[in-house]
Every structure is written in C-alpha cells, then in structure tokens.
C-alpha cells in the first residue's frame, strides 16, 4: 500500500518504456505509438520532467507520420486517422512547436470528415463516433480555426447522443459510458455549450461511479479502473459537480495502483502497469490537486499552462 506518489519511478518507467521495443506488447501497440507518446510526454510534463526527452527527435518523428492529406498516422507507415492527428497536435502543443504545422492542411483534413448531420468520421472509411466529434473540436480549437467546421451542427449531433440518464453515448441511442461522456462534455465545454448538459442528472450518474474502495468505474455495476479517474473526474469538474465524490478515497485508490518497485500505474491494484493507465493516474491526481503534479486542463487534456499560453494570448 502506498501513501505517496513515487513520481521519480514513474518518470523512469516512461523513459524506459520507449526503449523496450522488442516485447510482444510493444509490437501489438505499434500502430498507436502516437497516442502512447502523447500519454507519456504529457505525464512527464505534469511531473515537470519534459526536459528529459530528446525534443527534436520526437518532433521530427511526429512530422514523419503526417500524410499528404494533412492527417497523422499512429506510426510511420500506417494510415492517417483523427485519433492520432489529435495526439500529434497535442504533442506539438506541449513542445510549443505548433508553428511548424501547416495549420490549413491539418484543419482541412479534419473539416472534410464532418458529415451532413454534424457528426464526424474518424477517417475516410466512415466510422462515426462522438469521440471523433471531440477530437475534431479539440484539435481545431487548439489550432484556432473552429470556424472551418459547422459548430452548430456538430453540437446538435452531440446533443442528439444524450441519454435519459443524462450521459452520452457514441451514436444516438448508444449507452452512456464515462469515456464517451468526457468526449461529449469536453466538446460542449470547448464550444461554450455546457448549458446543453443536464448537470445535476449527469452529475449524480457520474458521482455514483465511485465504488466502495474509492475507485471509479465507467458504467453502473462495473469494476473500478484508474482510467476513469480521468474520464469521470474531468467531466465532473467541467460541470462543477466534482465535490459530489470523496476525493481522498480516490487519491488512495490511484496511489494503491502504483508499481512501487518499477514505476508505472495499473488499472487496479496489483495488475500489470502500462503507459495509458500511468497517464490517467497522474492526470487524475492532478485533477485532485495532488501536491507536486502540475494542473491539467479538464477539457483539452493538456497542462493548464500550455492551454493558457495558446488560448489566452492573441
């Protein structure tokens, strides 16, 4: 049982993970290396250790994943998709390197994926999901060109995915899920549309995700998982209902999921760690105002100082 964050070990775990390319796990994850890089680098920045990575090397690898269409792939050689385009933009934002992007090209790639009903496809093959609405809106807002899409229709589609429990699903009629709720609430936050959320109804559903051990689950009657410390907590913060959960118990749950010997955070205590849960654990602690962790923005999923630098200066 841990009583504090072993930040140095997590930093080492992230820096080492990059070097262990030969395990089966890392080959299976090969196609989403861009997401992995975003999770790892953001965690490092939240722990004030972004300086310990070779920035130029990473930036040029990121740029090597960009396709002629403007979209980014999950790794070199793979196809472009909005999932990796957002991660690429977020990584460049972390390094304050957005200026090297051809903003027109990236934003056109995203804008062309908007459908007639306001929804977004993830790539040219037409899978529709509110995750992609969030990605499009978040990405274009960081690039300051939301005017390239029909925001009204995009918001209308997201609202059409609202359920009778106050939550949101991936398409109209789909079941509420905390990850999906983060996407929809985040997109509504970024476009100034949180008044379209029933904050009390959704807030009650979200705060009831906290289970006895203090951890949060993503749907009723499911097991708790550290990643929901991000999805649920950020949504509760955006709608100003985070005081409805017991924060001290959640801090304890996240700390209990640390690998105290080798660093990294897992989904539940004593499970195998990975970079995804390490990021969500540290970001969750940031949202819980844990000392020594920089504040993270609940909507853009980047450190507050990065987002303020981009959006609060002209």
């Amino acid at each position: 049982m841990a009583d504090k964050l072993v930040a140095d070990k997590h930093v080492r775990y992230i820096l080492m993970a990059e070097k262990k390319k030969e395990s089966f796990e890392s080959v299976v994850m090969d196609h989403l290396r861009m997401n992995g890089a975003y999770w790892g680098l953001t965690t490092l920045d939240l722990l004030e250790k972004l300086g310990s990575v070779p920035q130029d090397e990473i930036v040029s690898w990121v740029m090597s994943c960009q396709h002629e269409s403007g979209g980014f792939a999950g790794n070199t050689g793979h196809d472009p998709h909005v999932l990796y385009t957002l991660s690429a933009v977020q990584i460049l934002a972390l390094f304050d390197k957005l200026n090297i992007l051809d903003v027109g090209k990236v934003s056109s790639y995203i804008a062309k994926l908007q459908n007639e009903d306001g929804s977004f496809s993830g790539d040219m093959w037409g899978e529709v999901d509110t995750r992609f609405s969030y990605i499009a809106i978040c990405c274009l807002s960081i690039l300051k060109c939301l005017d390239k899409i029909n925001v009204g229709k995009a918001v209308g589609y997201i609202v059409s995915c609202k359920n009778l429990d106050g939550g949101f699903g991936c398409t109209p009629g789909a079941e509420s899920h905390a990850g999906q709720i983060f996407c929809c609430v985040g997109a509504l936050a970024i476009t100034g549309n949180l008044h379209r959320v029933d904050k009390d109804l959704l807030g009650w559903w979200l705060c009831e995700r906290q289970v006895e051990c203090g951890g949060l689950n993503g749907r009723p009657e499911k097991l708790p998982d550290v990643c929901y410390s991000w999805w649920v907590l950020s949504s509760l913060i955006m709608i100003d209902r985070v005081h409805w959960i017991d924060k001290a118990k959640l801090v304890k749950f996240i700390l209990d999921c640390q690998d105290l010997d080798n660093g990294g955070i897992s989904d539940r205590p004593d499970d195998a760690v990975d970079i995804f849960h390490t990021y969500f654990g540290v970001a969750g602690l940031s949202l819980l105002e844990y000392p020594g962790v920089k504040p993270v923005d609940p909507a853009y999923a980047l450190p507050v100082d990065v987002i303020n630098r981009i959006l609060l200066t002209k």
Partner: peptide, 18 residues
C-alpha cells in the same frame, strides 16, 4: 487557493471559444 477551477468552462472566455 486552488489549482483546479471547477467553473473554468462554465464561464464565457476564449477557452470555450465564447
């Protein structure tokens, strides 16, 4: 006093493009 602002997105500002 706090590093987390729970009304950051319930307020009209450039963060929410409003």
């Amino acid at each position: 006093k706090h590093s987390v602002d729970t009304t950051r997105y319930l307020c009209s500002s450039p963060l929410s493009n409003s």
